[in-house]
Design a protein around this nucleic acid. Structure first.
Lengths: 198, 198
DNA sequence: GTCTATATCCAGATAGAC
DNA sequence: GTCTATCTGGATATAGAC
């Protein structure tokens, strides 16, 4: 039997094409405005034919959620090594904030629960937990321990993202405050490892 | 002619009743899940009859938005006087954060733009601008000037609200970090008026 | 296997009778 | 003011062509 499954390949390609089209629609009209009819139209299908690829509309959201989390994890993982843990922490914060603000709709899907009835599936959720682990480890590498420090760190960084996306999507009015906010954080939670240790 | 317009009074009462019912529904099922049919049913009407009181569903959202902003303004205004401006700033932050987390759905309506096609009307928006003015004045009273300080302040406080509502609605995991975050802020932007001046 | 055609059900919204 | 009737359109399921 043949090694390649051409049928499965074509199917996967079509699925990917549908997801791409979904992202385009959602960026243009808003996350909640995704409609099976227009999605089908964009890939040259009737709405009903989409159900051959996704069992329901929520399954499309779920696939988009998983895609996004994988993008974030890839970005967190594929970084050149950096010796100083405080530099790594600052880079992580910049990376995460950049990821959040470069696509407000993706941010809404990942971090705000605004689609009625949509909850990411367990495997999607596991990816999100893994992303949070990167933050925990980056703090631990700096010698900053404790859940309180982690909550404060996530609160500050995600807070800038929330303000930026809510009040000036696409801009940098809050993004450019990041260095200063990180200074505040590191003054309050002084690292015991790395360059800025006291 | 009579001084009281009983017709207008009854109409206003019905409008208020509809809005109350809308809040109940929205708190139970989510902001985006508000449906004219169920809203009508809850006040003993058919969905179509609601259009005698609100020209469209968005008009209901808009009235809810205006209601919420008025609640916030009332709360900001009706505070006992406090001599120290830094105390006033801290109280303002506590007040605002409490307002945001005590009703996550109201928070979503006011501060996240997640309903496709909904924008608050100009008079609703003006109320929101007025609320921001309270923050600006509270900072100015402390001798903390500049838009950068205001953006940082709002970013920090609203950031805690965003994290709290997104990750643990109804809880206090991020709310209880407020004092600490305010300490960070006041260390970075030292007040020149009031108790904590340096 | 994947498409088209069709049907059901639930939205928001409008027209017009009373 | 509230109703009935009706329109448009979206999600979803199924039957059947090929």
């Amino acid at each position: 039997m043949p090694v390649r499954d051409r049928r499965a390949e074509r199917r996967a390609a079509t699925r990917a094409e549908i997801l791409d089209a979904a992202w385009e629609l959602v960026r243009a009209d808003g996350l909640a405005a995704l409609a099976m009819r227009s999605l089908g139209a964009r890939v040259g299908m009737r709405a009903q034919s989409l159900y051959a690829y996704f069992p329901a509309k929520h399954a499309i959201y779920d696939a988009m959620f998983a895609d996004s989390t994988r993008q974030l994890l890839d970005r967190l993982t594929n970084q050149p090594p950096l010796d100083d843990p405080v530099d790594r922490l600052r880079r992580l914060a910049r990376l995460f904030l950049g990821f959040c603000v470069e696509d407000p709709v993706r941010y809404q899907l990942l971090f705000q629960r605004t689609i009625p009835g949509f909850e990411p599936g367990p495997q999607s959720y596991a990816l999100a937990v893994e992303a949070l682990g990167h933050g925990r480890r980056a703090l631990a590498d700096c010698g900053i321990a404790g859940g309180r420090a982690l909550d404060t760190f996530t609160g500050l960084v995600a807070g800038l993202a929330a303000q930026q996306n809510a009040n000036e999507p696409g801009g940098d009015r809050w993004v450019r405050l990041l260095d200063e906010v990180m200074d505040m954080f590191l003054t309050r939670y002084p690292p015991t490892q790395g360059r800025q240790q006291q």
